[in-house]
Design a protein around this nucleic acid. Structure first.
Lengths: 187, 187
DNA sequence: TTGTTTTTTTGACAATTGTCAATTGTAAAA
DNA sequence: TTTTACAATTGACAATTGTCAAAAAAACAA
């Protein structure tokens, strides 16, 4: 749990009082490989943090699984549209390994944001970080080739390549498994 | 200016006091076609609102202009990475028509967020809206064909098609002007 | 208006990626 | 171990999109 608090602090430097305010709304869960952090059509009521393990975010399109993102250890994840619009999630978050996941409740966070400015600022910082990430990913998808994106992944996040099956990686990169296989043999 | 206040209110219902707090940090500018709202390498220190007119957000990649987004009348725009990371913008925001643009200063907003919880919550709501938009756009880019995206634009935002030159639209859709031209003749 | 420049469209061809089918490889279950 | 199921690769071919060059159309200035 300590690494989680440190991570919260790196998002926004919370005072001891601020952290104490959050604590009642934090819960830890141990999940097994294949378990879901967020199920389809479930409303996303938490911001998740994968303290140990590895997860993927995916959804179904025309009966096929499309992987949207991976969440490596020590990273946050949640369904943006389900969380903010409070509607059933089309995204599914699944553990690809036995994982330890920390849940921060939206209900608690919302309530604290109304009354405590420190928490409100923490929350702003958290979502502006997500916004920057989202923007970078969009640029990458729109203006780089599948090969460039694969090479960037290989350079910056090789652990994702090691842990995730090819088919998930392919849909994450927006290409077919066949094309990914061909790219891999040519590098 | 009234429509701007109404729009702020629709983002997050501000009290009269909250609105008064913001007012000193709001400025209105009249810009001509071709003028820049944000120049290259300038740090983005405002959240802009195109009250009248039409703008596009673009950048240079390998010497070519890539249009990232359009900002129709009554919409907000800013450079996400430049604004939050306070670094020179690679994005350029240009008026495609004579425009009336309302500037909300980051400096003022940051200061108010530290002291007034209502403003902090307003700001959270503003950026979570941007995050939802960014997410939707990413899904669209990754999993729809250029033709599907063109048709969606035609259906949902036909005024963009009317106002923006083909070459800008093409790079916005992530295709060449030639391909866009061929798509158009086939619909 | 005319002439000039820029934008858009069209054609021919190349490169990339997708689809389908078959094969090989891998990992879990019997 | 062998069997079975699933994952990954490979080949052949089709579809899509890009590139380059040229023509047509539109926008702009003299």
């Amino acid at each position: 749990m300590e690494t989680y608090f440190e991570r919260l602090h790196s998002v926004y430097p919370l005072s001891a009082e601020g952290l104490d305010l959050l604590k009642p709304f934090i819960a830890k869960k141990h999940l097994s490989k294949g378990d879901f952090i967020l199920r389809k059509d479930e409303t996303c009521r938490h911001i998740y943090f994968v303290n140990k393990g590895f997860a993927r975010i995916f959804y179904f399109k025309n009966g096929k699984e499309i992987t949207e993102w991976f969440t490596p250890e020590k990273n946050f994840c949640f369904s943006i549209s389900s969380y903010f619009e409070e509607k059933p999630s089309h995204l599914i978050i699944e553990c690809l390994e036995d994982s330890e996941v920390i849940y921060l409740s939206k209900e608690g966070l919302d309530r604290l944001c109304k009354t405590h400015i420190e928490i409100s600022n923490f929350f702003s910082k958290l979502i502006s970080g997500a916004l920057i990430l989202s923007q970078k990913r969009m640029d990458s998808i729109q203006f780089e080739t599948a090969r460039q994106r694969y090479e960037k992944l290989l350079k910056n996040q090789p652990y994702i390549l090691q842990k995730a099956p090819m088919q998930y990686l392919a849909s994450f990169l927006g290409i077919t498994p066949e094309t990914l296989s061909r790219i891999r043999t040519q590098i």
